[in-house]
Design a protein around this nucleic acid. Structure first.
Lengths: 340, 340
DNA sequence: CTGTTAGCGCCTTCAA
DNA sequence: TTGAAGGCGCTAACAG
């Protein structure tokens, strides 16, 4: 598979290879006749510019890196799709990297990406230490963090550009919604104390409850992830203990899914016996038979904001002031929440 | 953001830059002392080799391209994850590209990827013309097609390397399973006549039915995709026409999902009134409340086979014989099929 | 309008 | 063990 180069074309066309370069890069300083001849030869010989060489000389690779925990997770898949779409619209390609939730791997990936001279990196993560990661590389390459993790005690944290959902507002939104539906005993299910994202959501819920004169109640998730399985276990606990609640506000859609399953097995009907509200609006929340009411993290908006910010950083070449963009959550009403 | 190069390091270390290169590429022809000194300086200066330059000189980019219709589709997201994982294990990175089901876009992507000197491309697609696409580029770069599309009348089609599910066997498997459960009136729902994948599945079903002395019955899908919405419409038609069937074998899980919804609205219970069998085993088929019995396309196996094949092609540099790998389907029993 | 030339950052012989 | 030099494929002045 030998590759034909610009020189081969030049030889065939009987011109210098600078002319070929010009003809292909759309320069005006070349006669229409030779251009056409050259283009024809390129086509015929199956020539394609070597992007690597071009990047090297132009000091622009035209690619950005996208680092996600796991692309097979629907939430990140949707983000990846949106980002790739925006990127392409602006002439960028994206290099996909899964950290698989592994710290070592994350380092390797960042190293690789800056070595590959990506022009920017979008780092999607909800790890608490995500901000420090981003901070570590912000001098090597523009980085925007997609996710809302804080970095307690890390003064560098504020210097990283980020886009995140207003999780606190989401907690408020959900609690108020359930209140308006007439619920007074609202359980918060599956909060992971170690996760700042969860803390924020929970804070929003708790503040709202208190200002409404209601008693907050919570079942925490001691594990290290919010999965359907864990949601199931927590919900079984909730239902079996006969918690006197008429609505459950779940820390995530996965937890809500698990709760649905548990409810089925425990003989509690959703939504007749208890209303269920999720958080995230992952794609399967909309599926028939699930129809989960939830607080949406508009993936497309997040992605757009992140890419837009990254583009600005790239263009201003690190001169831009640090920016935090906050995207507002949206209530998505489906079938799992009803008036009491 | 100026980048530090190998020359800067050489200057600081007081050696020629050839030595730096050697120290970093793990060559033995360098004294341990200077190597350590150099490595230390690199670390301190935040130096990273420029992969682009290295690729240029080594004639190896170390990246492969992955072209999918839409990464936000769970099926492709899982494939992407698996492929990225394998690739990384072998030192490759992956460039992600969504065609968004668009022909023009697909061409652009292929052109870009070969221009970027990816070492190979995995092209996931079920379009009927996918094979011709792959054939068009097989002389420029190793390509493996992940998907089973035929190319009727295209003699080039046979020359493309591919990995696919044995869809015919899947059709047989499903039909036999329903038969064993005692079903005799089995409807095939949502077959798209224009799709070769669907034709194969349907053939498997039909042959089995006939050899069992049963009458095949089918409701075709006239649209250009298998979505939940279309599945819903087709199923409503089926239920309202009072087709006398006790089981529906759906052309895809999405169709089955739509059928579930329609069933709910038409007052037919799944699985008590009719058993429902899907095809694909997309991730949400396993969700609680859905629990769809289905024929699985083992994404991980498909991905592994595809990557493995690609690797061989890369290593043998186009000398390898054309290979078609077939992955066997698996029956996944969940809750939507019961004995009659 | 076209050719010549000097690199982009790196690896790799070939000498020293 | 180290340095010098050529070149990977391409772009961008600078001449002609």
């Amino acid at each position: 598979m030998r590759r034909v180069t610009i020189k081969d074309i030049a030889k065939i066309a009987g011109v210098s290879y600078a002319s070929v370069s010009r003809a292909l890069s759309g320069s005006t300083e070349v006669s229409e006749a030779t251009r056409e001849r050259i283009v024809a030869i390129c086509e015929q010989e199956g020539y394609r510019v070597n992007t690597l060489a071009r990047s090297l000389i132009c000091q622009r690779s035209g690619v950005i890196g996208l680092v996600v925990p796991d692309i097979s997770n629907a939430f990140y898949a949707e983000i990846a799709f949106a980002i790739e779409t925006y990127a392409r619209r602006f002439g960028y390609n994206v290099m996909l990297c899964n950290t698989v939730h592994d710290a070592r791997q994350t380092t390797d990936l960042f190293e690789y990406l800056v070595g590959h001279r990506v022009e920017g990196i979008i780092f999607a993560s909800t790890r608490n230490d995500a901000r420090s990661w981003a901070a570590k590389y912000r001098d090597a390459v523009p980085v925007v963090l997609l996710g809302d993790a804080d970095s307690p005690g890390d003064p560098q944290g504020d210097r990283v550009n980020s886009v995140s959902l207003d999780n606190h507002a989401g907690g408020v939104l959900g609690a108020k919604y359930l209140y308006k539906l007439g619920h007074r005993r609202i359980l918060y299910l599956g909060m992971r104390p170690v996760s700042i994202t969860h803390q924020r959501r929970f804070q929003g819920y708790r503040m709202t409850m208190e200002s409404l004169g209601l008693e907050p109640a919570v079942i925490e998730n001691p594990w290290d992830a919010s999965t359907i399985e864990y949601g199931y276990q927590l919900a079984r606990e909730a239902f079996s203990k006969q918690f006197p609640f008429t609505a459950a506000f779940c820390a995530s859609d996965s937890v809500a899914l698990g709760a649905m399953q548990a409810a089925g097995e425990c003989g509690v009907r959703i939504p007749e016996d208890v209303s269920l509200l999720g958080f995230d609006n992952v794609s399967y929340a909309a599926l028939p038979r699930i129809c989960l009411s939830t607080i949406a993290q508009h993936q497309q908006k997040l992605s757009e904001a992140a890419f837009d910010l990254l583009l600005r950083l790239i263009r201003e070449d690190g001169e831009a002031a640090t920016t935090h963009r906050i995207v507002r959550p949206i209530l998505v009403e489906r079938s799992t929440c009803i008036p009491i």
